[in-house]
Design a binder for these strands. Structure first.
Lengths: 121, 121, 121, 121
DNA sequence: GTGGTCTAGACCACG
DNA sequence: GTGGTCTAGACCACA
């Protein structure tokens, strides 16, 4: 369901957080779905429960999940979270495209890169 | 010439390094141009000289500059550096575009975002 | 009659307890009125009966209800409970007003906020 | 500078966080002021550094401070943070006033309570 | 020196 | 069982 990669320079809690965020915002995890419990996921990933809890805490702060003490954590899929993420990605995409232009790539080349992975190629 | 921003989550040495790389690869700094000395730049940015030195060291490792002990650091503009940077940006752009697709944006919307800042709009 | 909200950071038993206290102290539930049985309410709210029982237990300790084993729980509306609640709210109101003052709000602005919802506006 | 109270039911990290937020938003700590280092404050309060760090992390997320690895944490006093806090307090004040009304207090009595601590009494 | 991540393990409140 | 707080202590990257 979620994978962590020790070679990835990103901290583990970010990998877990971003992994779930992606699953939630893309709709792969439906609204109301129960996430694995902190201890359960920690055990299955061989990671300290505190690390998982931090990921869940941040997802809750972002509005992606509800954590209910004694019951578990559940997908919320709020619009605000999706919009915030969309804004982040839009800015990252713009910045990358801009810098590629300064490297001398043509508009056409950049659009081709953007389409990679579409199946259009 | 270079600016550092404490609110930026990136470490300062990365901000300095990336700032110079951008100036060099985009051609804003011509081949052979002398960079400010470590002490000079450290003083003008009110930053620890070690931090500047690390930025320069990494730029040299990337092939963006040549550091000549006793004389200073000079722009090299190698092809290898440009290609490496281009690969990084290409991957970032693809990843952002892919995730925007999972958020439900159409191909058209994504291309429009990519074109932002072109002057085409 | 009572609603629980999983997004509310307050534990469920507090939501139930506070909900009934509000209904009782405001007079919405008349003296002597029978409350739903623990099992009944637990079923209708899809909540663990232990949770309801804890809410009732605390309401009894506060003097808001009488629980008669085998017969049920009944509204008591004691003066002591009202006074205790009034003290709590008074302190909360004072604290909020004080902090708003430190944020630079004028006395007038604070009084206006206090009156919101009065129908005076 | 900051005090923690073990009798307070609020977690320690919230007491620390809220204490600094109050000092910052009220202007008691001027913009750019350096906060005590995580370890320093932890030692002086006899609290685990992790607990302090969590408080600082949340203050940074709120936009109240900037934490710069290797340099320290500094007051930011953003407008957004002040507005968010003001909104929280406004809602708390309204809710308390409303419930006091249901307890039968007159508008006059409530306004008197609100003014407590003004020196107007 | 600084902030930040992670682990291991205890303890609590809630359901 | 659940989430949440806290401690103790190690380790890393940065300045």
């Amino acid at each position: 369901m979620i994978q962590v990669n020790y070679r990835d320079p990103r901290p583990i809690y970010e990998q877990v957080r971003d992994g779930f965020r992606q699953l939630i915002l893309s709709g792969a995890l439906p609204e109301g779905e129960k996430l694995p419990s902190v201890r359960e996921l920690a055990a299955s990933l061989a990671i300290n429960p505190n690390t998982i809890q931090r990921a869940y805490r941040e997802l809750e702060a972002e509005g992606c999940i509800d954590s209910v003490p004694g019951r578990g954590s559940f997908v919320r899929r709020s619009n605000a979270a999706a919009l915030a993420r969309r804004k982040e990605l839009t800015e990252a995409l713009c910045a990358a495209a801009q810098e590629l232009r300064t490297l001398g790539l043509s508009e056409e080349e950049i659009l081709t890169i953007t389409k990679e992975g579409t199946g259009d190629d």
